[in-house]
């Protein structure tokens, strides 16, 4: 039961919160301020979740998942949106992940540090901050119209590519961060033993960075599937009564956030409950994704 030193320090800090043990008033006030800040954000989250659960839990049942939308709020379901979101969840990272990791490996391991590279880096960081609807406009302009012959116009593929572009910069930034945290010594050791730079990257650096890369990717996917604006602009339909399947990427598509929006704007108040139930479903999917990211990080990340 030996308590490690940092933990002991932390415990003492917490115990000191209310006690005037030589600390100045300012310091304590600052501590309380931080605590209040944390509590407020937690409180907002709790209110949000409780509110949604109260509205939607009673409406959450299997038929919500297996039925298509209906004009009767008690019979409506999100099957089309659910299959759309699940398909997007697979297609989007399968395009963004290889591209993003490749770009990160190039920038981090192979590119020489010159003005051109720095320009590239700055632009990628800027891309990560571009509002999502702009990606939707890009998707609408390029994939819906310009490349309609390849993407099928307003298709599931168009939606996936648009979302893939949206999360690509985030994946690149996260992957570079993960690669950078692999110690120089690992690479040097590999090179010293006669491995080529490519071998070192493929067999040492990249595997060591993979947990971090995966975490970043999963978190960005969970952001992407909650987005409404970009896919709505890039041709997602409001309503359809058919499933989206991975093996039919050229079909029209819809997604959970769009179905939620559809329910929210309908006049019948019972649709608000259906919307809340669909929100719970979306939150559950996001939570599964985010916990997967946490598990990955905790289990496989290593300290050097």
């Amino acid at each position: 039961m030996a308590i490690s030193t940092p933990e002991r320090t932390a415990r003492r800090a917490v115990a000191d919160l209310g006690r005037p043990t030589g600390r100045t008033f300012k310091e304590r006030a600052f501590m309380w301020l931080l605590l209040v800040g944390t509590l407020i954000s937690l409180l907002v989250l709790a209110v949000l979740i409780i509110d949604i659960l109260r509205d939607g839990l009673g409406r959450l049942n299997l038929s919500l998942l297996t039925d298509y939308t209906s004009r009767f709020p008690e019979e409506t379901g999100v099957r089309a949106g659910l299959t759309g979101t699940l398909s997007l969840m697979v297609l989007t990272p399968s395009m963004a992940f290889p591209l993003g990791v490749a770009a990160a490996v190039y920038l981090e391991e192979f590119a020489s540090d010159n003005r051109w590279t720095r320009l590239l880096e700055a632009n990628i960081s800027n891309l990560a901050a571009v509002p999502s609807v702009v990606y939707g406009l890009l998707g609408a302009g390029v994939f819906v119209y310009l490349l309609a012959d390849f993407t099928g116009g307003r298709s599931l593929l168009t939606g996936s590519v648009t979302l893939a572009l949206l999360i690509l910069p985030v994946i690149i930034v996260a992957s570079r961060e993960a690669l950078r945290s692999v110690p120089r010594a690992i690479r040097d050791a590999g090179l010293a033993l006669g491995a080529t730079p490519l071998q070192v990257t493929a067999r040492q650096t990249l595997p060591a960075a993979l947990p971090g890369i995966m975490t970043g990717t999963i978190l960005s996917v969970s952001r992407a599937i909650g987005e409404t604006a970009p896919i709505l602009v890039a041709g997602a339909v409001f309503s359809r009564r058919a499933d989206n399947e991975l093996w039919h990427p050229f079909e029209a598509y819809t997604a959970l956030p769009i179905q939620i929006y559809d329910f929210v704007i309908r006049p019948q108040p019972e649709f608000a409950e259906a919307a809340a139930a669909a929100i719970i479903l979306l939150m559950a999917i996001l939570m599964v994704l985010n916990s997967a990211a946490i598990v990955l990080r905790n289990r496989y990340s290593r300290r050097w």
Binding site: L65, L86, S87, V90, D243, L296
Partner: peptide, 22 residues
Amino acid sequence: MLLLLAALTLFATACGGAEPSA
């Protein structure tokens, strides 16, 4: 870890695939 990744992907695909037979 790769196994876990594969399992996740399979899970997601299975969900998408199982839906129609529901």
